[in-house]
């Protein structure tokens, strides 16, 4: 295990890095404001059919287009913002942290400090989105909805960081994350789209499916969706393992030769 003062220092410096990232801060406020604002300005109040999938049954609901869109857009926005921040957190100064490891920083201290901040970032993002959404839509179960936002932030955050670890460029993983968030969270997980979809198999295998189902079932029903929670947890855990493996692989040479 790493030592606490160094972990704390890595955590604080990582937090400062995120707070000093002006583009990131602008995105944090601007993206939800723009997307949710456009929904408020354009969506109608006509009821649209919506399906929510539980383990043993499928619940059909009739909700206004505005309500449905606000919740689903919030989910996709959480995913994209989280992917961007984790990209900044894990990719941008990876060479610097390799250098720190060379100088004697324990990789566990680095990873604990970075992952702790990643988790705090996901919590802040999910809490902000839940609170903002709660002002516009009456959420049936606010806490499980928050957990859903937290899990989609975790899944997409881990995806963004993984894409960043596999590329030296910054723009490429941003584009890859935006593309996946667009196809998955912002298109195929749109309840208006998937409710009428012919084949759900592909949609069910995408990373945003379970977190979105958890968010929809918490926002619009009073039932707990254990299957969606479990599925989201499995996705989040799997993405984290992939990310961790890639970080460890990229650190290996340096760790092995760090000075006596």
């Amino acid at each position: 295990m790493g030592d606490l003062p160094v972990i704390r220092r890595v955590f604080v410096l990582s937090a400062l890095e995120l707070l000093r990232n002006r583009i990131g801060l602008v995105l944090f406020f601007a993206i939800p404001a723009i997307f949710l604002g456009i929904v408020v300005l354009t969506a109608g109040t006509t009821p649209v059919p919506l399906k929510v999938f539980f383990r043993d049954e499928t619940v059909s609901l009739l909700l206004s287009q505005e309500k449905t869109s606000l919740v689903f857009v919030s989910a996709s926005v959480s995913g994209f913002i989280s992917a961007y921040f984790s990209l900044v957190l894990f990719q941008q100064d990876f060479q610097y942290f390799r250098y720190c490891v060379f100088n004697g920083l324990r990789p566990t201290s680095l990873l604990l400090g970075r992952f702790a901040l990643f988790f705090v970032m996901a919590v802040v993002l999910a809490a902000s989105i839940t609170v903002a959404l709660g002002q516009m839509v009456s959420l049936q179960q606010a806490f499980p909805a928050f957990i859903g936002f937290l899990l989609i932030a975790t899944v997409y955050g881990a995806f963004g960081a993984t894409a960043g670890m596999l590329s030296k460029e910054f723009l490429v993983p941003v584009m890859v994350s935006a593309l996946l968030a667009d196809i998955d969270a912002a298109w195929l997980q749109n309840p208006v789209y998937y409710t009428a979809a012919e084949r759900m198999e592909i949609i069910r295998w995408l990373p945003a499916y379970y977190p979105c189902q958890l968010i929809f079932s918490s926002a619009f029903t009073d039932r707990f969706n254990g299957r969606a929670l479990l599925g989201s947890g499995v996705w989040a855990g799997a993405m984290f393992l992939v990310l961790l493996s890639i970080i460890v692989l990229r650190m290996r040479g340096v760790v092995r030769r760090s000075p006596p």
């Binding site: 003062p5 160094v6 220092r9 890595v10 410096l13 400062l16 720190c100 100088n103 004697g104 000075p259």
Partner: peptide, 13 residues
């Protein structure tokens, strides 16, 4: 901030 991190790392060894 950079130097204080480096000192914290290096003073372990």
């Amino acid at each position: 901030e950079h130097l204080s991190l480096m000192r914290a790392i290096l003073e372990r060894t």
